[in-house]
Amino acid sequence: MKAGSNLEKVLAAGHFAATGELGPPKSADREVIEKKAGYLKGHVDAVNITDCQTAVVRMSSISVGTMLLGLGLEPTIQMTCRDRNRIAIQADLLGAAALGIKNLLCLTGDHQKFGNHPRAKNVFDLDSMQLLQMVKAMRDEKRFECGEEMEGREPRFFIGAAANPFADPFEYRPHRLAKKVAAGADFIQTQIVFNVPKFAEFMKKVCDLGLHEKVYILAGVSPIKTLGAARYMAKFVPGMDVPDEMVRRMKESPKEKREEEGIQICVEIIQQVREIPGVAGIHLMAIEWEEAVPEITERAGLLPRPQV
């Protein structure tokens, strides 16, 4: 056991894992967190808390993670390189570990241009690979990035990284994943999968490289709520591959039934990716639609969640 988190135990025991995602509010409302946590509790093994995703200012990931611990859920905090240099990242991670957080997802972060503060100065002192390496060295070698030895207890995290199987250059993606594994990733959460055949092709290359034995790969899935969302994701979201087929299915179902159709598509995708060799679980990103999580996990046959 690297950190002994619930997610790690579920994966190590060979269960098909399910993680959720919770988007913190753009305010200081604790009630929002409690409400959203209610939908996720008991339906997923761990909950990712985004770190100012799409560069929009929100409640910080670590503070929401602490609230979730109090509510009896297991948080996976996210750490991006956009807002912090290596000093701030390490300091925050020490604090997070002391607060009892055990899962960490290391990301590069969205560019601030997409957010509500496009005039801000970014940091990008490290990239996600270097961040992974740094966190791993803190855990396994008790060393700070500068090489200095750590006195006392080290922060022990189950370290995650992201992978996008659909972005360019496609042939490089499995190799990049291999680099992330070598740098220290224990689990991988992928970009939302809509194009299952392309994902299967990617997974085949990943298995050829033998990576599925070294790292747990959780396929990202998400329900589409409206036709507009489907169209927007297909056209404007960088790194997202939504086949025309999906957009057509959303379009052809009657308006009142579209949410239902979105959930149905999501359930089908979960069942399809489950069959792909090397997939250790799913990561359900029902952002701003946490109400859908109980229904999706129920219908996809992911309940009850294993107790380990």
Binding site: D168, K179, G239
Partner: peptide, 29 residues
């Protein structure tokens, strides 16, 4: 690269273009 990526592309490059400014090519492409 607008994100100073030294170890490979971020997850945003599409059709070889950078997510931050689609008129430019992704450096990693």
């Amino acid at each position: 690269c607008p994100k100073s990526q030294r170890n490979g592309p971020c997850g945003g490059a599409m059709d070889g273009h950078c997510e931050v400014d689609i008129s430019k090519r992704c450096v990693w492409d």
